[in-house]
């Protein structure tokens, strides 16, 4: 179970009315390398991974949900007061027709989220390598998102999220090292 704390992991401030960014930020909401995909991927893989590294997947997947909330907040702030014309000009006309200003798990191109984005191979090394790749792809996505805006407040939150991807990648790499080590075998000698 989880205990919910009713605050964001990191404050989200958006100072520029730039509806266009909402369309791009959605990539990290419902995209292949987004926070939802990350959270669900790790939360599912943790059942069939050696006990020593379950905690890493559990903790990181939980944090990804906190990131998902931050992205949702950014998108919501950028779209809640947008006129239909502004949405249309930002490339969100089709989104408006289907969802009004509601958030939806889709990527920046409007493609709905699919479980095909994530894998659970049951092989601990294969799964952890996928997780490392996912973190690096998310880091890159944050870089391109930071490049797409000159809103320093938004950039600040995105830089925090990018740094977290780096820490997560490091932890998954350490998880691989833990699984590579064969401590029990060494004890025999």
């Amino acid at each position: 179970m989880w205990v919910y704390e009713k605050k964001l992991q990191y404050p989200v401030r958006v100072c520029k009315c730039d509806v266009r960014m909402a369309k791009y930020l959605i990539e990290q909401y419902g995209g292949a390398d987004g926070e939802l995909a990350a959270a669900l991927r790790y939360m599912n893989q943790r059942y069939t991974i050696p006990g020593k590294v379950i905690g890493v997947l559990n903790d990181i997947s939980t944090e990804e949900l906190a990131h998902l909330e931050m992205i949702a907040t950014m998108v919501y702030k950028l779209t809640k007061d947008a006129t239909v014309q502004q949405l249309e000009e930002a490339g969100l006309g089709a989104h408006y027709v289907n969802h009004d200003s509601a958030l939806y798990y889709e990527n920046a191109g409007g493609v709905p989220w699919t479980a095909a984005y994530i894998q659970a191979k049951g092989d601990p090394i294969a799964d952890l390598y996928e997780d490392i790749a996912a973190e690096e792809k998310a880091r890159a996505t944050y870089q391109w998102l930071i490049n797409m805006t000159d809103d320093v407040d938004l950039q600040d939150s995105l830089k925090f999220l990018r740094e977290r991807e780096i820490v997560h990648s490091q932890r998954f790499r350490e998880a691989v090292e833990i699984l590579k080590e064969d401590r029990e075998y060494k004890r025999v000698f």
Binding site: Y142, N147, D150, Q155, R162, I166, Q170
Partner: peptide, 9 residues
């Protein structure tokens, strides 16, 4: 573990 990122277009 700190990585700075400067917007770069």
């Amino acid at each position: 573990l700190y990585s700075t990122y400067t917007p770069h277009i």
